[in-house]
Amino acid sequence: MKLHLVSLSLVLAALPFTGCRDQKITAYRAPKDPAPVVAPAAPAQMGPSATLPDGHPAIGGEAAPASAPGAMTGNVPTAEGMALLWTAPAHWTAKSLGAMRKGSYAIAGETGAVGDLAITAFPGDTGGLFANVNRWRGQVGLEPIEAAQIEASVQNIEANGLKITIAEATGQANGVSTTLLGAIVPHEGQTWFFKLIGPAALITREQTAFREFLSTIKPR
């Protein structure tokens, strides 16, 4: 009994040490940061918000220094050890990643039309399929659909062990007929979004290329 009392008192004595080490505010003089030599993408030909629907402000968007021409048309390792790789069609032009993008491409059409492909990833399911499809519909001025209609409105494919859900929405943005092709790829607790948006005629032409592109997405 007495022995148990000793063990109990030892356990209690250790309790105050359960906290972690505290850190302090520091002040110092440091050299300027070196400029990145390897750019994550080629310089932008256009601002990242150029093809975004009305009301969407640009986020980030500082043009990264130039990389070797064509470097981003091959396998693109994602930043920060991110988990997916893909191969973009050769006629897509890589552009600056901006603040939130893991990948960013401009797709040029006739008479100056430009499509924008944005690749982003967030932890968790970011609201789920229903919320995201309706968010995309809202970006081309379409009314939200009912939860019961959601499965019928999307297409599910599988590529390299990944489950890809594809949604399509055509409506109006900035008074222009606009199509949005979106793919949602859950992977290792994150949700990856591949969103292609632009003038309807151009995006319809790019349908096949976009689907071929989706089939190249693979885990790192």
Binding site: K24, T26, Y28, A30, K32
Partner: peptide, 25 residues
């Protein structure tokens, strides 16, 4: 200064406590 940066770094443990910080720098 074009040659260097003067830095005041506030660690996340301090950020997590929130509140107002007055630093001499």
């Amino acid at each position: 200064n074009p040659a260097y940066n003067d830095v005041v770094a506030i660690p996340q443990t301090v950020l997590a406590k929130t509140g107002t910080i007055q630093h001499p720098q």
